[in-house]
């Protein structure tokens, strides 16, 4: 009979023996936790399960998402389910996408000392320090693009010696860029005007009045792009 490989892990210092195949999140549950904080989508999108860990004998602190990182033998771990970062409040409608738009709200971006801890720690493998450099230059397009996959887990900010909250800088860049520098969709503007003028009211009303057999004929004969 084949044995299931088990490993020892230490959840906030307390030892548990868990199957080696599990993710950190599943291992917490295997150990008996019913998760409240530190668990969200369980699929790498929400950033709820940022986890810091160290393997016994190693000095290096590592990080990962609990939902996407497997346990290892002698893993010491703790979760960072919340990080008390500053989020500046602004009215997007009155902002301009200027070179200093980000620095006006987050001047600490210029305190970056280039240590690259943010990039090293990002579970999404984003070049975080690079996108902060774009923000320093006021290059909203590049900052928006390079930060796109950010899940706002907070690990970058937790390690930043300059107290930059990278993920809030990034969302401001993306919103400014998408609102003001990406051209607005011309076809969308047109369609919204048509709807406001009531162009589709009567045709939709007519469709609503049709019985199932009529609708089936229309549906089954519709042309597909």
């Amino acid at each position: 009979m084949v044995q299931v490989e088990m490993v020892d892990i230490y959840i906030m210092g307390k030892k548990y023996v868990v199957p080696a195949s599990l993710t950190i999140m599943d291992a917490l549950e295997f150990a008996g936790y019913q998760l409240k904080r530190g668990c969200g989508c369980r699929a790498g999108f929400c950033g709820a399960c940022a986890t810091v860990y160290r393997i016994a004998g190693d000095y290096e602190l590592k990080v990962g998402l609990a939902c996407g990182t497997k346990v290892e033998q002698d893993m010491y771990l703790a979760q960072i389910p919340f990080f008390p970062a500053v989020k500046q409040v602004y009215d997007l409608e009155t902002l301009a996408p200027s070179n200093t738009a980000i620095a006006d709200y987050y001047p600490e971006i210029y305190r970056c000392i280039g240590c690259n801890s943010c990039t090293a720690v990002c579970p999404q493998d984003l070049k975080v320090m690079q996108y902060i450099a774009y923000a320093q230059r006021g290059d909203l397009a590049r900052c928006a693009d390079a930060s796109f996959d950010c899940i706002m887990c907070g690990l970058c900010a937790s390690r930043c010696p300059a107290h930059i909250v990278q993920y809030h800088v990034a969302i401001l860049a993306r919103r400014l860029y998408a609102r003001y520098l990406l051209p607005q969709a011309p076809h969308l503007k047109l369609r919204v005007e048509e709807i406001r003028e009531g162009k589709y009211d009567a045709p939709l009303e007519a469709l609503m009045g049709k019985d199932i057999e009529e609708l089936k004929v229309l549906y089954n004969s519709r042309d597909i792009e």
Binding site: L92, A144, F148, R174, R175, L176, Y177, A178, R179, Y180, L182, P183, Q184, A185, P186, H187, L188, K189, R191, V192, I195
Partner: peptide, 21 residues
């Protein structure tokens, strides 16, 4: 379409071509 317009104005970063389509 009104919902997409609302999102666009809120600065939602949709995939677009160079003309904004």
């Amino acid at each position: 379409p009104m919902v997409i317009k609302w999102l666009e104005e809120l600065g939602t970063f949709f995939d677009k071509d160079e003309q904004g389509n």
